[in-house]
Amino acid sequence: MSVNLVAADRPVWSGEAKAAVIPAESGAMGILLNHEPVLTVIKKGEIRLTPVEGGELRFNVDDGFAAFDANKLTIAVERCTATEEKALHSGAEAAAAE
């Protein structure tokens, strides 16, 4: 499924992922391929993404929502910071994009 993670002032990460865990209002929600269409409010917490190329990305997010349908996951959050190694990862990606 394709994942698009955007913060209020910039796009953060987009790409193909196998799985995603998002901090939904009523607790963490795991999303795999062919999940039913869902629109949920996100509270402060951590997003975990498993990209198809392996590894794991973690982002600290704050207030937002996520929409999933037709195997497309859109996560829009107010604030977002990458934690640990994907800080490196997204930095390299940003450089590649420029």
Partner: peptide, 20 residues
């Protein structure tokens, strides 16, 4: 349009999204 499930409920999602 895709049939969404709203979490926790359509009203609360609306309340959260409209100000944004």
């Amino acid at each position: 349009p895709p049939l969404y499930t709203f979490e926790p409920s359509a009203e609360e999602v609306l309340d959260a999204i409209l100000p944004r």
